[in-house]
């Protein structure tokens, strides 16, 4: 059975009553649960379809950051002047127009695929996931929210309400999605790097994330601190790159191999470091 909730409150009540599969745009659920054509997709248990809940579709900014309602469609992110360019860059390359018109940001987060294309960007923006249930609101950092491929700490009575991106300043931005072809492809790996330099060229902030090379997105604050120091002291980066190399533990699969994923990730890191003025 599919529940079509009247409104957001109805959704929370329904989720409280039973474990439901939440469906928004459907672009992931419908692929995962594919059945013989003509038959109903094999969605486990009952489901609730929140695609038409306008209450979850918004983009607004306040002092706590940029709030994006979970039901906001990917295409809407592209069209909004409030959305930061790095997120737009990822959305532009992640999917075809047909997918962007229905796929939602909440879906990409909730799906928690290591190859999820918005995720590396959300990681560098220290995104907070806002979950809600009839019991109340729970805010959790994306680092703690996603625990493995397809795994999150969302409880079955909770819904992803919105995500909050911290507004950060940057003067340099590097994004690369490496897929099997130039569009419409699942990432073999992806990389995002941001840095912020002052007028004197001193780097004040640097952030890096890798997608599809570990069971979750790879981002490490300690290494970023070391990298920041090195960038400002013209120290060699080799140790830091080695450390990242330890964190990047990709797999061989039908789309690429571990060797390429690892080496390419490191090349992108080096290329980014060079862009930031490092050695």
């Amino acid at each position: 059975m599919v529940i079509l909730p009247k409104d957001y409150k109805h959704t929370l009540d329904a989720l409280q009553d039973e474990k439901l599969t939440i469906i928004a745009g459907g672009t992931d659920v419908m692929v995962k649960n594919r059945n013989w054509s003509g038959l109903i997709p094999r969605v486990e248990g009952n489901s609730i379809n929140i695609f038409q809940l306008n209450e979850l579709s918004y983009i607004r900014e306040d002092e706590s950051g940029l709030h994006i309602g979970a039901g906001t469609k990917l295409e809407e992110l592209l069209n909004s002047p409030l959305i930061f360019e790095p997120l737009k860059a990822a959305v532009r390359e992640m999917a075809s127009p047909a997918i962007r018109h229905v796929g939602t940001i909440g879906g990409n987060v909730g799906n928690a695929s290591p190859a999820g294309d918005t995720l590396p960007i959300l990681y560098v923006y220290d995104t907070v996931i806002v979950l809600e249930s009839v019991e109340g609101i729970r805010e959790i950092s994306i680092f703690e929210f996603i625990t493995g491929p397809g795994k999150t700490t969302r409880k079955s009575n909770e819904i992803i309400k919105e995500i909050i991106l911290k507004n950060i300043d940057y003067t340099g931005f590097y994004y690369e999605k490496v897929g099997g072809r130039r569009s419409d492809a699942i990432s073999k790996l992806s990389f995002v790097g941001l840095y912020n330099a002052d007028e004197k060229g001193t780097i004040k902030d640097v952030r890096i994330a890798f997608g599809a090379v570990y069971k979750t997105i790879v981002r490490n604050h300690e290494l970023e601190r070391q990298l920041l120091q090195s960038l400002n002291s013209e120290k060699s980066m080799e140790d830091i790159i080695d450390e990242y190399s330890q964190l990047i533990q990709p797999i061989d699969d039908q789309r690429s191999n571990a060797n390429y994923r690892k080496n390419c990730s490191l090349s992108l890191l080096k290329s980014f470091i060079q862009m930031a003025g490092g050695n």
């Binding site: 599919v2 459907g26 419908m30 379809n49 695609f51 047909a98 018109h101 229905v102």
Partner: peptide
């Protein structure tokens, strides 16, 4: 049947969408 080829494309509120991925609820 998985939203990659676009042979099933339709206009959904005037925008292209893959009908193979669109549940009737939407």
């Amino acid at each position: 049947g998985e939203g990659e080829c676009g042979a099933c494309a339709i206009l959904f509120n005037d925008e292209i969408v893959n009908s193979c991925l669109l549940p009737m609820a939407n």
